[in-house]
Design a protein around this nucleic acid. Sequence first.
DNA 1: CCCCAGACG
DNA 2: CCGTCGTCTGGGG
Length: 829
Amino acid sequence: MMDNGATSTKEERFLSRMALNDNKAGMEGLDRDKINKIIMESSKGSKFYENELKREQQVNRRIEKMMLQKAQITEQQLKKAQVQVEKTASVLEMSRDLSRVIVHVDMDAFYAAVEMRDCPELKDKPMAVGSMSMLSTSNYHARKYGVRAAMPGFIAKKLCPNLVIVSTNFDKYRAVSDEIREIFADYDPHFQPMSLDEAYLDFTDHLEQRQSWPESSRTHRLSSFENLPQESALEETDLSPVLFEDSPNSSLGLLGSEGAAGDAFEVFGTSVEEAVREMRFRIEQKTRLTASAGIAPNTMLAKVCSDKNKPNGQYRLPSTREAVMDFIENLPVRKVCGIGKVSEKMLNALSISTCSHLGQQMALLSLLFSETSWHHFMEVSLGLGSTFIPRHEERKSMSTERTFRELSKAEEQFSLCRELCEDLAEDMKKEDLKAKTVTLKLKNVNFEVKTRALTLPYAVATVDEIFAVAKDLLKTEIENESPQPLRLRLMGVRVSAFVSLDDKKPLQKSIIGFLQPGKTESSGSSKDMHQNLEKENHSLQASPLVCPPLMQKYQRKEEVPWRNKQSQSSTKANDNKNAASDVSENELVSPVEAHASTSGCGGTSSETLTCPVCFRRVETTDLNIFNSHIDHCLNDPTRKPNQSTASDSESDLDLENDHQESEVVHRRRGECEAEGEMSKNSEELSRDSPHEGQQSLKNSSVQKGPLIKGDSKDVTSQQPQSCNSKGPVLICPVCQLTQETDDLTVFNHHVDLCLNQQVLHELGGQTSSSRNPPAVKNINIRGKCVYYMKLFSTFSLNTNPILCTFSLCCMTALETRCEHNVGILSPFK
DNA sequence: CCCCAGACG
DNA sequence: CCGTCGTCTGGGG
């Protein structure tokens, strides 16, 4: 078959969308053709099938378009793209970080395994969890028949008439999930659960400590469970754990005396494999369920690895470039998290099926796919991925939906809609959420999906409020269709654009925890915050210093890095802002943005960013790449230039202390390359008035370097020398404008005021939405520094966590450089 | 900004 | 006789 995916030969060819994909574990050596035939026969002619057909054709059209585009690409373009791609690749390559040990753990056939554990009769039978219309999981026995997750039960029954279908018991799964998470926490307190049965862990720290652990701390007892008499004696399945719960050093004595059970001990070594094996062992002891794990230098690889020896196995990919590249070589792209059915098909159409193909075709891909997409592809092809475990952001939406058999009466539709709103309102209450956007989702009997949304100027939370909106949306849809009725098979209601509520601060808690495990838990209560702000507010009113419009410096279009859509409009929005509360209508300028050198050093280079950690320039404007570089730097202590500044901050002053301490934020000018090159002339501080900031910025050829903080002495002693002999500029990190002073105390005062305007506004909350994420908060680090942080809140696992990392980076950078200063992190969008 | 569809897990 | 929930992206007003 020379089917390239773009054209369909109709015949017996299955829809690629419907066919079994043998991607998953446990599906080796089964009769795929036969299975697909059954699937086809069960589906053919159904509405669902028709819809799938339609969607497949859509994808095919997309592919045709792509092929057309491909045909028009000239040699020249390809050449050029190739150069760019190689440049990108080498930058990414530099950022490769093999120092972390990331583990992905995944319970085997989780729901099914739980049900089997609790009902031994199921043990030897093919079974699945779910319903006649949809299965969540199947056990390995059932998988032999092609029965798998996301398959409707009635089809599964055809594949395997003996299949036992058990309905889901989420409470039970949640309970088990809690148990395994307790274990996860022992190895990485900041582990990231991805679902009930899956998590990423960063083992790096655990391993370091583990090296000095006594054997006793690595010893676990096998204890027998009576529940599973028929379990083979060879298996470790019916045993339970002991020890370990105690602190590493304390369980030695206990161990010896506990030896009564005979040989029922297992000592685990200090290696990664042993540690992970131990973790899996403990999971099994505790839950009588097995887990599989993947060990690799980053999350992307770890995820793939965990699948490799499933079930009840683990796989370690050594942390060498060579091993990684070998591993990637023949890895089917479909195995990679984020590349699904559609992407696979599109890639296949380009004759790309493995990751090495991906690498070979990058130039082409860069011309055919969006930047985000091909960057992802590029990272995949290089075996790169996140090297830290991202935290979960606060939720962005909440929804409920229901499928039912045809519902055509408007009346019934409205009452159903109300029910949904009731459910939703209840859920919202649990999390104390208020949302501004309500979305109605409808699926008709032909499986066509529609969503209709409305964003309100205010936030809603109660049933009636939500329903009022949903009802209207539904009404217009019904009217739209009339005189025909809406023939629905599903309805859903979603709320999003949550307003930020003050009393939630999971954000900085977790991120601080990430940086300083066990050390920094305290964050100012929002109440205190308000009091502080109130206080500040007075001085604010009285002060002649008013923050000029943010983002102003990006007024000229060509100065806008990364196509910041907001920048132009926000300038306009700022025009007549003078009251403090108005100013922060705008976004803070991100440090990331601030680092974009659009004018370049001395007006020559125009595509560099300066790493805030190593101070090197990175030849790119691509944040993904830049981020990777930063990641690398952060993980390489030798790159941090903090040795030179470590001593400069003994002061314990804090912000409340009337700004006595000197605070400097400066940027380097000119073509400064190497670390340690600090400007030394404070006399060359910019004299621009705050209100003329934009002009002065326009005129200056500022290399927007890292924000550096320190005492005033340090400004003179440790600033980088500017390469074109211009001095440092005092630029407020909040409003981004140069300040007309070289008096650091004055400048600091300005920053504080600026900051507090921002904070005030943020806590006012009226205008914030999920896109203008919540908090500027004060955080107490090491009990003596107050930082105001604004953390970016969108984060995607599918892409590089730019901002998350960058935030960490800034904090780290700040921490290494100063003990008492203000750090600003802000979102860019 | 808002809306919507679609991909993905 | 083919689910639910949440996130992200990309295109378009």
